[in-house]
């Protein structure tokens, strides 16, 4: 995946909570990634039209277009099908996990997460992606 101008991986975080996006952005930029954010599924689709991130962090519970619907769309569009997607959600049910895995999500991060945990999981996913 092409890194940005400074050679850093780009991560797109999608969540309807501005505060969560702020935290994710702060934590991951601190860890050396470039983070772009989207406040809704539709905004995420608009962003993806002109930007190709290395990873998408996707919330499930969002108004209008929720995470599970969005991942289905992203996985069939050719501009986003190859981008790894990790769910970042408060839904901890086993059935939700299974649904996400069926949609080819690479990881399932449960809220509440701690900053070090988030950085660790993102690092692991990107390492795996680069190895491909």
């Amino acid at each position: 995946m092409p890194p940005d101008a400074l050679g850093r991986s780009i991560i797109l975080a999608v969540d309807d909570e501005e505060d969560i996006l702020g935290l994710v952005k702060m934590v991951l930029e601190e860890a050396g990634y470039t983070v772009i954010t989207a406040l809704s599924g539709h905004q995420a689709l608009q962003t993806l039209y002109h930007t190709k991130p290395d990873l998408i962090l996707l919330d499930i519970m969002m108004p209008e277009l929720d995470g599970m619907e969005l991942i289905k769309i992203l996985k069939i569009m050719d501009f986003s099908a190859m981008i790894p997607i990790a769910m970042l959600t408060a839904k901890t049910d086993f059935s939700d996990r299974m649904a996400a895995i069926q949609e080819n999500a690479v990881d399932y991060i449960c809220k509440p997460f701690t900053p070090p945990e988030l950085v660790k999981r993102v690092k692991e996913i990107l390492k795996g992606g680069n190895n491909k």
């Binding site: 909570e17 505060d19 969560i20 702020g22 935290l23 702060m26 934590v27 519970m61 408060a90 839904k91 901890t92 809220k111 509440p112 997460f113 701690t114 900053p115 070090p116």
Partner: peptide, 21 residues
């Protein structure tokens, strides 16, 4: 349950994240 869970956990994540920072 899913809504309550979301409503409780999301603010908690932000609070705990910023507190850690």
């Amino acid at each position: 349950i899913a809504n309550v869970s979301h409503e409780l956990k999301t603010p908690l994540t932000t609070i705990s994240g910023y507190a850690d920072y």
